[in-house]
Amino acid sequence: MNPLPDAAQTALEQFSQAAGWEQRARLLLEWGQRLAPLSDAERCTANQVQGCSSQVWLVADGPAGASQWRADSDARLLRGLLAVLLARINTLPVSELAQLDIADWFNQLGLQRQLTPSRSNGLHAVLQHILKHA
């Protein structure tokens, strides 16, 4: 197996040391804050992911064959979740993305509950979108 991307390695170290929901929440807020925001023009309906109770926008860019996404949301914790997701998948070759066990990734971070297919949280819809457009 390929080594984790650097950003993912950092996320793993930080989240696996977090004791309890409060520290996890603080980390998510920090990761969310560091996620580069999309421009106003990019926060458009065409880039919006349907099926989330918060607004989420996804933009694919980067070289062909690699999975490279930028994302934004109006909800701060969801921005954090997007940040740790992108930390794991960005720069992966598309062939590897399809093999990746994302649930396991969130599991390792102690964030598995955020991946439920309910509409209350957009993460599941975001993943579907990325896998469909990879």
Binding site: S53, A75, L78, R113, S120, N121
Partner: peptide, 21 residues
């Protein structure tokens, strides 16, 4: 404060309320 952030943190603390429309 985004309602979904609030609902997220309440859920983390075992409070079952609902956010949405």
């Amino acid at each position: 404060v985004h309602g979904s952030d609030l609902a997220h943190l309440l859920a983390e603390q075992g409070i079952a309320i609902r956010h949405g429309h």
